[in-house]
Design a protein around this nucleic acid. Structure first.
Length: 826
RNA sequence: GCCGGGGUGGCGGAACUGGUAGACGCGCCGGAUUCAAAAUCCGGUUCCUUCACGGGAGUGUCGGUUCGAUUCCGACCCUCGGUACCA
């Protein structure tokens, strides 16, 4: 072995990558005696090139996979492509390149980048969601959901670009205008497919309490998103309604105790009562038009100043029969609930501000309890507490929240004007998109039979490729050759649905497909039973709600269809913080920010991976800087590589004999085993890969100072270097592969995590902190596990401590063994 | 607006269960090596004060609990993510 052998990034890493490819090192099967471990990084959208957010995501998944392999697991670590979506159509419009072609060339390029980064993927299982062999089973599954009654059609409001004559995604609406046409967006009502996720709301909520492997932060967000509440659904009757099938205004409230304080109703601008009233009121019509010229995005709506207008209509109060005016308000969402709310300005802050603005009556019906210290000044702000007692409500006066809730609910129930209900903020999942580059919805519309699911034997319904995309309309709806067909039930002329699925449909079950990626007989096969449940799912925090909730829902529906036999898809979740560039999330819309290619060429994959892992703990967002990459490369070359080469030049040492070591040798051995123990804990439990790196750096600092070339000195050195290589190998697998081979003549992938020798970690002395009144005054080296008496005596011997104890009385001594002793003086 | 995070030296971050704030690295400063430089190696580096020993302040802001708070509680400021058609 040559002492001068230098570390070469380019040739070295690519040779190791070829070795992995030729040996299919990371291809796994189900016929394996080891315990299985399924590690999955959220698959990427093939946007063109990887950005540093991808590098972080896949490196983290790779580190976890490689660590679990060292721990003796049979690790499945697959990769695929979330290939349908808007950017491919945008590219088609802009550069006149077909979405399929654009997508496939992006995939090819990004595959190359992934291989160059050395990820331990089982490439045999790779697929893209735009492969008909994949989406075929999504179509098949949708028809199962259709037959189960889990899907239905309903009108929904979309952003409409009046110039391009097309539906806009929220992202495509910029300051209320279409991104290409710059025309003010309008709202338009379309008939759309919905999936009945609310039917699973209770279960989706309940299981959050049984998912210890998920971060509380994500579970809290999902809980709030589902938004379960208990309240009362009631009707404000309208004996003289202008709309024939409306006989009252339905509202839901969680505060029936304040019902007697309701002074007006507010309906959404899209509510049938509003549109009806506007027919005879040009001013109201103008207001509705104005309301309909905003995007449908909740964030945009919520930022609008709260505005409203009286509709001229009244409803009857369900308990008092009083006339209650009906207002139209821009903050009421048509999509949520019944599109109408009852307003109690005295006890709801938003209602209060609205009432003040428009001079509507404010009627107080709850007051603080006499012994309460709550403040209540209805003139300035609403009193929203549930701890008060009812007043000004006749027979209900004096009741507390619970009693008033029940009494008023019963009164409404006895008049058949209301009932107690559980309500969810969660809305059903709108899955239809008026776009081309997505999975065609497998439904045929027949004038005689209605919507009919495409029979299994006719699946998949593939996308036509001779399509022209010019940014106007919905491409499939302009292709009669494609959509004209016959009804599977009656055989008469019929048309295909020309919408495609929301791409969250594809990402809701891909994790399961990886277990049986090549199965052509069904959506999943028995191999899913072996791999079932992703043990560790790694992905960005931006997916904390939508993607993860849809995937959990899909899993439960698959379970109810007998396709999987567990309740939840992901045992453990690692929710990654954002990699920011100039303070914002890296994404397709942010352009090419953070292309790792230059860094890979210059410093190699190990250095890029190491710099990324070292930069911050996984859950934390941070601003990416390239500065760490060069220093990572230097450390690998000048520390790890150099120390191993020096060591190899001394030949093979004898067997390590722990009992024969001198103090210095014991000390290095203690550091080695403490580092191993810390790294194992950081990898397995804490997921703090940044501190794994810093621990190894510290350890290598000790190694560099250790100059002992005696036989046992070399043996201790060899143990230390071997530990450093094993610990680093999940993060910097290429250089570790080479060094391990040189040190042990064996393949790195056959190595296993060393057993920590507890006896090597025992120290004789500890450093004790000495405080006076909680302030650090001295440090003290003392025997391990010294008693309080010994510690106190030793501390009282220190000059600086005595200075602070002089002419004071020690009132208390706090001793935390092996940590500190604190004198409380007065 | 609403929901959920985050805020620690010049910078990225560490401090794991309330017990030494600033590990490790970048940057910077000094030294060794060199004819010189690059590369490499060694040392220093929160701020104020002190010749020094030491002392004081300090983890977004203000307040609280505690012998002791980056850590727990309350209010606020800033910032990031999500907000249902970006993925």
């Amino acid at each position: 072995m040559s002492e001068n052998k230098s570390y070469s990034v380019a040739s070295g890493e690519e040779a190791v990558q070829s070795y992995w490819a030729e040996n299919e090192t990371f291809a796994v099967t189900e016929n394996d005696p080891r315990e299985k471990f399924y590690c999955l990084s959220m698959f990427p959208y093939p946007s063109g090139q990887l950005h540093m957010g991808h590098v972080r995501n896949f490196t983290l998944g790779d580190v976890i996979s490689r660590f679990q392999r060292l721990k003796g697991k049979n690790v499945l670590h697959p990769i695929g492509w979330d290939a349908f979506g808007l950017p491919a159509e945008n590219a088609a419009i802009k550069r006149n390149v077909p979405p399929a072609e654009w997508t496939h060339s992006n995939i090819e390029y990004m595959q190359g980048q992934m291989k160059r980064l050395g990820f331990s993927f089982d490439w045999n299982r790779e697929f893209a969601t735009c492969d008909s062999s994949y989406y075929r089973w999504e179509q098949w599954f949708f028809t199962r959901m259709f037959r189960k009654g889990l899907v239905y059609k309903k009108a929904a409001w979309v952003n409409w670009d009046p110039v391009d004559q097309t539906v806009l995604a929220n992202e495509q609406v910029i300051d209320g205008r279409g991104w290409r046409s710059d025309a003010p967006v309008e709202r338009r009502e379309l008939s759309q497919w919905f999936v009945h996720i609310t039917e699973y709301a209770e279960e989706l909520l309940d299981f959050l309490d049984r998912m210890p492997g998920w971060p509380d932060k994500v579970k809290t967000m999902q809980r709030n998103w589902i938004g379960r509440s208990q309240g009362v659904e009631m009707t404000f009757p309208m004996p003289e309604s202008p709309v024939s099938d409306i006989t009252g205004v339905d509202v839901y409230t969680t505060r029936p105790d304040t019902l007697l304080g309701a002074t007006y109703l507010a309906v959404a601008p899209q509510h049938p009562l509003a549109t009806s009233a506007a027919e005879e009121d040009p001013e109201l019509l103008a207001f509705l038009d104005k309301c309909n010229q905003t995007s449908v995005a909740e964030a945009d709506m919520a930022k609008l100043p709260k505005e409203g207008m009286f509709s001229g209509l009244y409803a009857k109060h369900p308990l008092t029969d009083e006339d209650i005016p009906i207002w139209v308000a821009n903050f009421v969402l048509m999509e949520y609930g019944s599109g109408a709310v009852m307003s109690v300005p005295a006890h709801d802050q938003r209602d209060c501000e609205f009432a003040q603005k428009y001079g509507l009556p404010i009627k107080q019906v709850v007051k603080p309890k006499p012994d309460s210290d709550e403040s209540c000044d209805i003139a300035s702000e609403a009193y929203v507490s549930k701890n008060g007692v009812v007043m000004g409500s006749g027979e209900y006066d004096g009741l507390d929240f619970d009693a008033a809730f029940d009494a008023i609910a019963e009164a409404l129930e006895s008049k058949s004007l209301g009932k107690r209900t559980v309500n969810y903020r969660l809305r059903d999942w709108l899955v239809s998109r008026q776009r081309y580059w997505g999975c065609p919805i497998p439904i045929i519309h027949c004038d005689h039979c209605g919507p009919v699911p495409v029979p299994d034997k006719e699946l998949p319904i593939t996308l036509p490729d001779n399509v022209s995309i010019d940014g106007s309309g919905s491409p499939l709806s302009k292709m009669p050759d494609w959509y004209n067909t016959s009804c599977p039930d009656c055989g008469k002329d019929a048309v295909r649905d020309t919408d495609t699925f929301d791409t969250f449909m594809e990402s809701s079950w891909y994790y399961a497909r990886f277990a049986s990626a090549d199965c052509s007989e069904g959506m999943l096969d028995e191999r899913m039973q072996y791999w079932r449940n992703v043990d560790h799912y790694v992905g960005g925090e931006e997916h904390a709600i939508l993607h993860l909730l849809y995937a959990r829902f899909f899993h439960k529906v698959m379970r109810d269809e007998g396709l999987v036999d567990s309740d939840e898809p992901f045992e453990k979740l690692l929710s990654l913080g954002m990699v920011l560039k100039d303070g914002a999330k890296m994404s397709k819309s942010a352009g090419d920010a953070g292309d790792p290619q230059v860094l890979l060429n210059k410093h190699g994959a190990d250095a890029v991976r190491m710099a990324m892992m070292f930069a911050a703990p996984p859950e934390q967002s941070f601003e990416w800087s390239e500065h760490g990459v060069e220093s990572a490369e230097k450390w690998l070359r000048n520390r790890l590589w150099a120390r191993v080469q020096e060591h190899l030049a001394h030949g093979t040492p004898p067997e390590l004999e722990p009992d024969q070591l001198n103090d210095e040798q014991k000390e290095l051995r203690r550091v080695t085993h403490e580092t191993l123990a810390k790294a194992e804990d950081d990898y397995g439990r804490r997921l703090a890969f940044n501190t794994v790196v810093s621990a190894v750096m510290s350890m290598m600092g000790q190694v560099s100072k250790f100059q002992d070339t005696s036989p046992q000195g070399l043996a201790v050195m060899r143990e230390a270097l071997s530990a450093a290589i094993v610990i680093m190998s999940p993060i910097t697998p290429h250089i570790c592969h080479v060094l391990w081979q040189e040190l042990h003549g064996k393949a790195m992938e056959d190595a296993s995590w060393p057993v920590v020798d507890e006896s090597a970690m025992i120290a004789n002395e500890v450093e004790l902190i000495v405080q006076v009144n909680g302030k650090l005054r001295a440090k003290l080296t003392i025997a391990m596990d010294a008693s309080e008496e010994e510690a106190e005596a030793a501390a009282r011997d220190i000059e600086n401590v005595l200075r602070f104890l002089a002419d004071k009385t020690v009132r208390k001594v706090i001793h935390v063994p092996n940590r500190l002793i604190n004198f409380v003086v007065g």
